[in-house]
Design a protein around this nucleic acid. Structure first.
Lengths: 205, 205
DNA sequence: AAACAATACGAACGGTCGTATTATTAGTTT
DNA sequence: AAACTAATAATACGACCGTTCGTATTGTTT
């Protein structure tokens, strides 16, 4: 039991604090570099006490992924879904993604891109969770594209446009972190604009 | 002295064998997961003997990056430069990149994408070497694009087209490894075709 | 054959890792 | 206030980390 009368008990507060710090560490040093001892000492709690919350390193990693997903949804998805469906929402999604990366919602840039590369070739529960998150995210872009197609604003294969847009996002994120430079976001914006323009129906041809 | 009459002495052979294995390990488990003890035991040599070749873990990592660069150049760049400059070479570069990733020249997919994400947000000599490699690679694509521009085959901003193409490569690489699926390469090919087609001069408009 | 590097080895160092066991504290319920 | 439970802490373990050291082996040069 973690809740009493809707009020959080002690243990759940700790869990939240742990995971908030964990996603930040992992976005810089990865889910492997996320060590229990370091996490505990940074939070000023005991290693064993922290460990007891999760039972294993892998469970901590999976919980960290779920926590990152919530933050990601709040920063990227929610703002876009406040815009009406169609091309406008697709633009909004692109803008909120770039802003999510640029503003370093996670200090190491996009959490999922970082740890997905870390575990992509490894197998196991963590890899599977990340593969699932990737699929979920690509599906979400496709759905937003499809809304624009259904409204007759664009004429494209949703999966193909989703692939391109996601590619621009990721390329900008990596280049920006690697060179500590914001210019790649402007390049990505240019690519997005051009790509969406070329997808519009009734475009000059 | 490492060479005598152009013949390799013992130590250099070991170094080569170490680095050949190191790039493979790092492409799966990263430059941090590349541990000296593991590397030595996989090669059947002593940990201290291996260590003596590099003097520090960081030097081993930097040497591994240089070794990966040579393999990358052989697999991706050299084949493309056997094609005449212009749009043909740009296509060839794209094809050889996708084939480099698909055929798992490194078992974990693109070495540089993997370790660049690992060290992008960390600073230090390794991060700087990887930032340099990224810049060198983007510059190479731009030059190939520029050759096509100078021949009047396309009309684009070389940096912008290089950004897009590289984005397609990387997105395909990650998706393929994460889902153990070759379909992303076909998606990337489609994106590349469309993007190059839209850049051609004398295109229908 | 003697001298000299280059190369490789085994053993050990202090640290940190994830994990298990046991004890102590704090909060809630009776 | 006593009993009970959930949460945190203390301590310890074996494994592995990068690194250092002294020594043996090998190959080349004199």
């Amino acid at each position: 039991m973690e809740k009493v009368d809707g009020r959080l008990v002690r243990g759940d507060q700790t869990r939240r604090a742990v995971l908030r710090r964990a996603v930040d560490i992992a976005s810089v040093d990865g889910l492997e570099g996320l060590s229990i001892g370091r996490l505990a000492s940074e939070l000023g709690i005991s290693k064993s006490g922290l460990f007891a919350h999760f039972g294993s390193k892998e469970e901590l990693q999976l919980a960290t992924i779920r926590a990152a997903r919530r933050i990601y949804a709040d920063a990227v998805v929610t703002p876009a879904y406040e815009v009406e469906p169609g091309l406008g929402r697709l633009f909004a999604l692109s803008e909120s993604w770039l802003e999510y990366s640029r503003s370093r919602v996670f200090p190491g840039g996009c959490f999922f891109q970082k740890v997905s590369h870390e575990y992509a070739a490894r197998g196991g529960a963590v890899q599977e969770a990340l593969a699932g998150a990737h699929q979920e995210w690509m599906g979400l872009i496709e759905n937003v594209v499809r809304e624009a197609v259904e409204r007759g604003e664009v004429d494209v294969d949703p999966a193909q446009l989703a692939f391109d847009l996601n590619a621009y996002y990721e390329a900008a994120n990596l280049a920006s972190i690697l060179h500590n430079d914001e210019a790649p976001y402007e390049q990505a914006r240019q690519s997005i604009r051009a790509r969406l323009e070329s997808a519009r129906v009734g475009k000059s041809r």
